[in-house]
């Protein structure tokens, strides 16, 4: 990286006595910028890890995804526009890493279809199922149950739900990260949330039986 910057700097500068120190100063400034960028980017590691964990469903895979994400981010840090949303920029890379890995394992995110259900599917299901108040079931909901249920949703819907409902990104951020129109974010979110409720409901029945 530095070698490339070095040669570019020397070529770009006029061949005068001033060239050496100017290029050196530029290199130093760039190194400072990069270190600054790295520290700023690393502050988002927890958030990225949680998104990676929900996308992949495995702690080990999540850590590998995060490491590969930062590797790409640090190599391509000049592609980041200072002042823009760094978390969204990193999440875009994370999502690409995730897709690449899924492709390698030929578990290609497919356009799976599933039955659309009512908005109140989970609520109704819990009402039919048992004596206890529906909200009490929510209090017992564990990270594991949510992770497994997210794993049941087709990836193209899962990633929108993970970004918006867990990663706390706006519709617009999610649209930018996924490279899809905001209307598509909204419709996938709608279907993804319903699919999640359906998955949680079938897990609730398993627990009860």
């Amino acid at each position: 990286m530095l070698l490339v910057a070095d040669s570019v700097g020397l070529v770009a500068d006029p061949p005068s006595d001033q060239a050496e120190p100017t290029a050196a100063a530029e290199r130093a400034a760039e190194a400072r910028d990069r270190v600054h960028f790295e520290e700023e980017a690393l502050e988002h590691a927890d958030q990225l890890y949680r998104i990676a964990l929900r996308l992949s469903g495995s702690q080990q895979t999540a850590e590998e995804l995060v490491q590969e994400t930062y590797l790409r981010a640090f190599r391509g840090w000049r592609g980041y526009r200072p002042g823009s949303n760094l978390a969204a920029w990193l999440a875009t890379i994370l999502r690409n890493v995730f897709l690449d890995e899924a492709r390698k394992q030929s578990r290609r995110p497919a356009q799976e279809s599933f039955e659309d259900t009512s908005e109140y599917y989970l609520y109704n299901h819990l009402s039919e199922a048992g004596a206890e108040p529906q909200e009490a079931v929510l209090n017992r909901l564990s990270g594991g149950a949510i992770a497994e249920s997210l794993g049941d949703i087709p990836p193209m819907f899962r990633e929108v739900v993970v970004l918006v409902d867990i990663g706390d990104f706006s519709y617009q951020d999610a649209a930018d990260i996924l490279g899809i129109p905001i209307g598509t974010v909204m419709s996938r979110l709608h279907r993804g949330r319903r699919a999640l409720k359906q998955a949680l409901a079938s897990r609730a029945s398993e627990d009860a039986s």
Partner: peptide, 21 residues
């Protein structure tokens, strides 16, 4: 409405409490 709001909240809270290694 209360159920849906609480579900939303629960998913977020539970997942944001995931321990980071």
């Amino acid at each position: 409405y209360h159920f849906e709001a609480k579900l939303r909240d629960t998913v977020k809270t539970v997942c944001c409490g995931d321990p980071v290694p």
